[in-house]
Design a protein around this nucleic acid. Structure first.
Lengths: 154, 154
DNA sequence: TGTTGACCTCGACATTACTTGAGGTCATAC
DNA sequence: GTATGACCTCAAGTAATGTCGAGGTCAACA
C-alpha cells in the first residue's frame, strides 16, 4: 500500500495502518493483534507484500478490546458483543448503537457488583461483624438459593 | 477434631469447618480452596486425621476472593490486599478496616474505568465519530503520555 | 465385613491470553 | 551491496487459575 518508511509513523498517515502503527496507537502488542485476528475479533487486508493493513475504524475495535480486558471481560464474550458490528467496513451509527446496548448491560452488571462490594466494605467488613447470615458479601446475589453454585446459607 | 458425619453439614456446626463445608458455604470448589491455600491466600490447621480444618473467619476471606475474581482482580493482587490481615486468628476491627481501605481504592479504580467506558458507549461510540484525538476511550488515563504502555496519540 | 463418602497428596491436563523463537521476504538506508 | 528493520508463518512456550485422576486413609453405616 504505497510507501512505507521503516519504523517511524508517517507524519501524514493515509487511510490504511500497518500492524506496527495500530500497535503503537492502541498499546496492544503486535503479537496480540495477530492473535485477535485469529480469533476473529479484528480483521485486516493484505497489501502486495502480504502485510496486514488496517482500516482506521479498527482502532476503535482494538481500543474496546483493551478496555474490556482491563475490566475482566473474556475475549469470547467480546466476540458475542461484536457480533453485529461489521468487520469489513466502518460500522454505521446504528450498528454501533445496537452493539453498545449489549455492552452497557455487561458493564452495568459489573459496576453494580463493585458498588455492592464497596458498600459492604464500609459496613459489614468495616464493623467486623461475624453474622454470616445477613452478610450480603457472602450472599452476593441477595439470594440464599438452594440450587446452582455460589455462596449459600446452610 | 471431634466427630464427623459423612457428607452432610452438621446441624450445629462447631468452631471449625471442614473443606467441604467451606466449599458449600462459599461456592468455591474444594480444589480451588486447596489451590488458594497453596498460594497463601488462606490457611488451615489439620486434625488428627490430617484433614484441613478452617476457622470461621476464613469464610469471609474466601468470600472476598470469590468476589474479587468476579470483578477481575488477579489473585496476586489479593495477596497484597490481604497483606495486613492475619491468617492465624480472627482479624480485629482495626485490621479489617485498614485492609478495606486498600480494597476500596482498587474497587474505585475499577468502577471508574467502567463508568468511563459506559459514558463512552453513550457518547463517542454511539455517535460514530472518528476523531481519535479527543476520544477518552483511546486515552483511558486522560493522558497522552509518551512513556509506558497503553494507547497514545501519535 | 464390606462398602461408601469425605478427605489426603501429587502429577498431569485444560483454558485463556498471549509471547517468543526460528526461519524467511522485502524495501529502504548507508 | 550489504545491513537493518518491519513484516510474514508456524510451532512451541509461558503464566494464571484452576480441574481431574490415580492411589491411599479412615470412620461410619448396612
Amino acid at each position: 500500500m504505497t510507501s512505507y518508511r521503516s519504523g517511524e509513523v508517517r507524519a501524514r498517515p493515509d487511510d490504511w495502518l500497518t500492524i506496527g502503527e495500530v500497535s503503537a496507537r492502541t498499546g496492544a502488542a503486535v503479537s496480540a493483534l495477530r492473535f485477535y485476528e485469529e480469533l476473529g475479533l479484528i480483521a485486516s487486508e493484505r497489501d502486495d507484500r502480504n502485510q496486514r493493513r488496517y482500516p482506521r475504524h479498527m482502532l476503535r475495535r482494538v481500543a474496546l478490546i483493551s478496555v474490556a480486558k482491563r475490566i475482566g471481560i473474556p475475549l469470547q464474550d467480546l466476540r458475542e458483543a461484536f457480533a453485529d458490528v461489521p468487520l469489513d467496513r466502518p460500522p454505521s451509527h446504528r450498528e454501533w448503537q445496537r452493539a453498545s446496548r449489549g455492552w452497557k448491560r455487561r458493564l452495568e452488571e459489573r459496576r453494580q457488583t463493585i458498588e455492592r462490594l464497596e458498600a459492604e466494605l464500609t459496613g459489614c467488613i468495616g464493623c467486623g461483624c461475624l453474622s454470616m447470615r445477613a452478610c450480603a458479601l457472602l450472599n452476593p446475589d441477595d439470594t440464599l438459593g438452594g440450587e446452582g453454585v455460589g455462596p449459600r446459607r446452610v
